[in-house]
Computed example of a mutant assay.
Amino acid sequence: MNLRDVIPTAENSSNFNVVPEAITEVGTTLENLKAAVCGETGASAKYAACAVAAKEQGFDQIARLFEATSAAEQIHIGLEAGVIAEMEPGYERPAAPEAEGIATDLNLIAGALGEIYETSDMYPNFIKVAIDEGNKKAEMVFTRAKLAEAVHAELYMDAYNNIDAPTDEAYYLCPICGYIHKGDDFEKCPICFTPADKFRKF
């Protein structure tokens, strides 16, 4: 993801349209936040299981990618749950479901498909409702998650295409928005502008 002069938003970006024949069930912003937390909780658990499977199958770099994306989803969960708690004090997060990984190439494809769904269907729908309701905090949280998920999908496909030709590059996770960068050739997050020295290395 290339760095822009301004932090990307739904208002200044061209990739926030909802896909035709969207399948997301859209509710109020509060309902959408809860749905997002549930989805991200499942994704985080799944990616953690995929990391274990990749490690066992000898794909160390891919295992680190799955670990990074699992942690990224935890960031999204925290951001979304924080907005929910302001709207509904006493909210309790759902428990993570049981999950297991299968063949690593299939886990990468499934991960990419899930991230593409979130970035092209779920989050654009949720962002539209948040804008309509004037909920700026939810709009920002959804926007950052949407943009990060697109990069996660790209990284999964890169790992899939190069599964038998890995590099020794590390993955770096932005602690603010969940963006992940492959390699150390960057200065700051292209989504929220957090400096590179604040990133977590995998």
Rank of each mutant, 00 (worst) to 15 (best):
A112E: 12
A103E: 15
E139T: 10
F193H: 14
E133A: 13
A96R: 09
E21F: 13
F186P: 05
H152P: 07
E92I: 11
E154S: 11
A96Y: 00
A153I: 05
R200M: 12
G42R: 08
Y172M: 04
P166M: 07
E187L: 09
M87L: 15
A196C: 09
M157A: 01
I102Y: 06
F126L: 08
A110T: 09
G78F: 02
A43H: 08
H152K: 10
V6P: 00
Y117C: 05
I84C: 03
L147E: 08
V6W: 03
E100T: 05
E56D: 15
N162D: 13
F142K: 08
I77P: 02
E115N: 05
E86I: 00
C38A: 12
F193R: 11
G183H: 03
E67M: 06
A53P: 03
V83G: 00
M140S: 09
A10H: 08
S13G: 09
I191M: 08
Y160K: 04
L33Y: 09
E56A: 15
M140D: 10
A99G: 07
N17C: 01
A43K: 05
M140K: 14
Q57H: 10
E67I: 00
K46P: 00
S70T: 01
C50F: 13
F202H: 14
L33R: 04
V52E: 13
P8H: 07
A71H: 02
Y160R: 04
N12W: 08
Y123V: 02
I102A: 05
L173C: 10
I163N: 02
E40V: 00
A71V: 01
S44G: 15
G111Q: 04
I131L: 15
S70Y: 00
D164R: 12
A68H: 12
G39D: 03
E187Q: 13
K188N: 05
A95R: 14
L108S: 04
Y171A: 05
L108G: 03
